[in-house]
Design a protein around this nucleic acid. Sequence first.
DNA 1: TACCTATTTTGATATATATCAACCTTGATT
DNA 2: AATCAAGGTTGATATATATCAAAATAGGTA
Lengths: 232, 232
Amino acid sequence: MIGDACPSSKCADCGFRSAVFASLNAGQLEMLTSGKTFNAVKKGATICKQGEEIKAFIFLRVGLAKLVRNTTDGREQIVGIATPNDFVGLLSLFSSKIYQYSIIAIEDSEYCSVDYSMVMDLIRGNGVFAQSLLEKISHVSDILINTRLDLDLRQLRGRVAFIICYFANEVYGATKFNLPISRKEIAELIDMRVENVVRILSELRRDNIIRIEGTTIDILDPEKLKWIKVHG
Amino acid sequence: MIGDACPSSKCADCGFRSAVFASLNAGQLEMLTSGKTFNAVKKGATICKQGEEIKAFIFLRVGLAKLVRNTTDGREQIVGIATPNDFVGLLSLFSSKIYQYSIIAIEDSEYCSVDYSMVMDLIRGNGVFAQSLLEKISHVSDILINTRLDLDLRQLRGRVAFIICYFANEVYGATKFNLPISRKEIAELIDMRVENVVRILSELRRDNIIRIEGTTIDILDPEKLKWIKVHG
DNA sequence: TACCTATTTTGATATATATCAACCTTGATT
DNA sequence: AATCAAGGTTGATATATATCAAAATAGGTA
């Protein structure tokens, strides 16, 4: 499960290149290729653990993961969802020596780890790369903060609608999808209690706004759902 | 009020140098010195406005400012407080062409503006500078996110205690201080209603945990306040 | 001073959310 | 098939928070 070769062994061919590594030259890409580690993990696997030393820069290539924070009083809080190409792994990379959050796969996933010191060398040696990394990390942080602020303004109905829209629009790009997280995890993600998540989902179903079949959610009335997300 | 000369006209002598600009060489510092604008503003002044184009990198040298977000439905939300040397002005600098938040002085303040393109040039030309900027922005974002997540776990009593402790410990370093923001602004900062802010402050006073004299707050029982902040 | 207006404060009440308890599903295991 | 554990669901109730109304206070201005 650890340290497999990357399917396309050259990082130059990897889909990620366009995203952050576009500015690297041939030599730097070669360094990256030989220094990275490819990993494939099953749903539920821990990719990195809160509190442990940061040794690598983590890239989600395929799949889905949750960022989890264990609070001092023993509760769990889901900080956000990491999707391929969004560089959530960057989050506290430069501000701390230890991971602020755990990253746990919520779908079968593939990711690459790039040695921390190698990334630092690339930053110092390539200003354009540094700039693009600044833009990425800034963007990821901004989205996270703005999402949180948006959620804070809403009451529970609006938060649940928000999260359904999020998975539909941002993650799956479809009105019908498999919810990758449990009711309890939804609760941890939007700061509410399991019972209320369930209750509100039931209400949305009763009002024919969504259909729930097992783990599948089907949005029947996107307009009404959006209205609840904004006003409710 | 705009474009005054900086008291110490060379950025090399400025207290900020140690913070981010330590890695700049003489020529780069000279460029910075000639390209920056120094500003002194009164309490209440708008330093930058949400939605406007980002043209400069803003540095708070002296004073205190609030980051304000106007929501789509007309409410105001205070994202955070900017203190001298903490580089809150960095927040969305690299992820957007427009300011995500307004910055408004809540005490008489002084700040410097550095042209956006100049900062970009420095990043591209000086990897160590880029790295230190990455660390700063990452740190600022991390604190903001973690604070928000902490607040989200608490109920109102805990949030009010949190904010009192914040001003006492992080901003003024004293148990007795002048609250720089109104009750309404406290409410906007920690997502609650003015009436409840007032009510809880009154409770804290009644229980001899704090004393309130006009705009001054005096923490009488730091231990109890901390307990409420954590458990309340 | 007298007169505004905004902020602060308190109380009564409605609404939203959490808690507690019970039961139902589902999937895994024996 | 029987058992079990975990997640899911619903209802009744307690608690927390928002809303509405009204009064007190402070600051600015004619």
